[in-house]
Design a protein around this nucleic acid. Structure first.
Lengths: 66, 66
DNA sequence: ACAAAAAGTCAAGTATATTTTACAAAAAGA
DNA sequence: TCTTTTTGTAAAATATACTTGACTTTTTGT
């Protein structure tokens, strides 16, 4: 799952720690999601979308071919 | 997390088992999600959205106030 | 160059999503 | 009513998301 977190964060000049705090998750979680280590849960994806005022689809891109 | 799965399924006259098969998950998973027992993973939410040709937001509604 | 801040990573633990098997309850069809 | 299909549910096992704590590497600022 690709995502635009890094860019969205950069546009706002936020650190991973600051983003994590707003999402109420750990900094490591933000880092892991940004680096594609795992996908966020659906509730967290909604929280991210709400924070950036974008749709989930505008932030996370599914890459499954099937 | 509320969702419109039951209605979307009814509109297409699909059983939970048929939907599960198309999503490549177990029937119990479809049932549990429909009944709100747990939220789907983000990849599964994307798969559901793709199947119904709707956005994730049109199918799943976040209910967190915060 | 140096110091501080930010980002990356790892291990171990907890929480939640999903599977399989099995059975009970409800709905649908004859 | 009887039978079949569908739905609901539960327990136990596995997979993945997420946490905390700690440490290293990279970036930023002076």
């Amino acid at each position: 799952m690709k995502n635009r977190l890094k860019v969205l964060r950069a546009e706002r000049d936020w650190t991973q720690a600051q983003l994590a705090q707003q999402l109420e998750v750990s900094r490591q979680t933000v880092n892991a999601i940004e680096k594609g280590k795992f996908d966020p849960s659906l509730p967290l994806a909604f929280k991210v979308a709400r924070l950036f005022e974008l749709s989930i689809e505008e932030i996370f891109q599914d890459e499954t071919t099937a």
